[in-house]
Design a protein around this nucleic acid. Structure first.
Lengths: 251, 251
DNA sequence: TCAATAGTGTCTGTAAGACACTATTGG
DNA sequence: CCAATAGTGTCTTACAGACACTATTGA
């Protein structure tokens, strides 16, 4: 088929963000309340139109800053910023009832924020447990009379984002993206436990993460945030890939 | 930012295909010769516009059939069709000099085709070794006076597709998508060796794949395609995830 | 004192890497 | 006969899972 720029069908392109954090030993996602139809009053993932001269990842980073005040350090960047990566693209013809919209979803992993939402136009944004948003624990899905709380196909996007996070912390050091710049082994373990929804043996976990070269770098300090014996503080090392991986227990 | 459907910037949305196969103990990709500017005469990945009422994956499957005659069985389907999955989306503002184009790339893994290209409008399509297309072996990249052979950002898309294939056969049974419906352990091993570009111990490989439940199912037949002692024939079993994974040797 | 968390060491089972050996074909 | 590929078995080592034990805090 020859390329015919004058005859392409018109599409709108948006970015949607799956922003995940760990708080209170559970995985939380950022959602915003929709102020207008369709799905008025329902929760949705933050997002918006890609501008005419804007890169996709730049649009995702811009939306992230607008919604949360977070600065994203896309890929490999060690700074205090959140991790940002492309997740997948959703373009079913009727996913938005008004027009044809193709949405490029991005996944953001952020530490628990001191002030939940410090952003600009985040009118009614909040953190919600992903289990609640996805109806986990009510029998694995939403009942017939019960409506999934998320607008559009955002429940599917969120599901895909959570699964991506769950699998990526197995073979990468990405779990540290959920932690503050300095953290203890116990705090990192609680991240794994929250994201996977399982209990891990603290002793084997300690041996694994401290024994993997480049994963953790001791900062010298100690803390007693959790009660009990003071724990060493670490920051993320340079290693990004874990080999061998952290094994997720069978369910 | 309120959703304003009347004010969205105009985008064209295309699908591009990374179609991979294994032949002559190397990884090959399907490329087509461009007949018009820009990049006239250069090789490019097959692809085309998404229609106004067409799902993204349907557009990818349609392009695949048009270019190769292959029928894709997207996801989990055991039939003779090729494996098709979404790869990533590319939307840099200037990636197409004529207009703003966002391209959703799909990855296709296909067995070596008896008649290379049996499709319809595939004017000048051919299989090319991915190493040649990506300039591997010339020092890891294209020299200054040498031009990458692929149009647009298709070298990056191909690179991402190859890397996805390389990592996915580690922890899934996807390597069988490169094989005909019935195949031997040796043929499957040569697939791994071609995709990873390494040599594997035939004996340890045999133990691993035949010892993983659900990976391979013996069909009862034998063959002597490769010379030497006849080998048992297998077909792909129901298992899609390999646990523990096939380990890729360090480079 | 106890409860809680941090951290180390030890045993066991699984499985990967290396590699010897046998089996069955074609030339 | 030999060369080539298929398939089995054995030894060693790495490492995960289970769990005993000590260390250091706060209540």
């Amino acid at each position: 088929m020859p390329y015919d720029p004058s005859a392409f069908p018109p599409f709108a392109v948006t970015v949607d963000l799956v922003v995940l954090t760990v708080r209170k030993d559970a995985l939380y996602a950022l959602v915003v309340r929709r102020g207008e139809p369709p799905y008025q009053g329902r929760w949705a993932l933050p997002g918006g139109f890609v501008r005419g001269d804007e890169d996709l990842e730049a649009a995702a980073a811009r939306e992230l800053t607008e919604e949360t005040g977070l600065r994203s350090q896309a890929l490999e960047d060690q700074d205090a910023g959140a991790h940002l990566e492309q997740l997948a693209t959703y373009g079913a013809p009727q996913r938005d009832p008004r027009m044809r919209v193709v949405s490029v979803a991005y996944l953001v992993l952020a530490p628990d924020l001191p002030s939940p939402i410090a952003g600009g136009d985040a009118r009614s944004a909040r953190w919600a447990p992903t289990d609640t948003l996805l109806g986990v624990g009510d029998g694995g899905g939403w009942e017939a009379e019960q409506q999934a709380p998320l607008a559009f196909d955002h429940d599917q996007i969120l599901r895909d984002g959570v699964e991506r996070a769950r699998s990526k912390i197995e073979y990468s050091s990405l779990a540290t993206a959920f932690c503050p710049p300095e953290f203890t082994v116990g705090e990192l373990r609680r991240v794994y436990e929250a994201v996977w929804g399982v209990a891990l043996d603290p002793r084997n976990f300690h041996r694994k993460v401290t024994g993997t070269p480049g994963f953790l770098v001791p900062t010298g300090g100690t803390t007693t945030r959790q009660g009990g014996r003071p724990a060493q503080l670490f920051r993320a090392g340079g290693a990004t890939l874990l080999n061998p991986p952290m094994l997720r227990p069978e369910v």
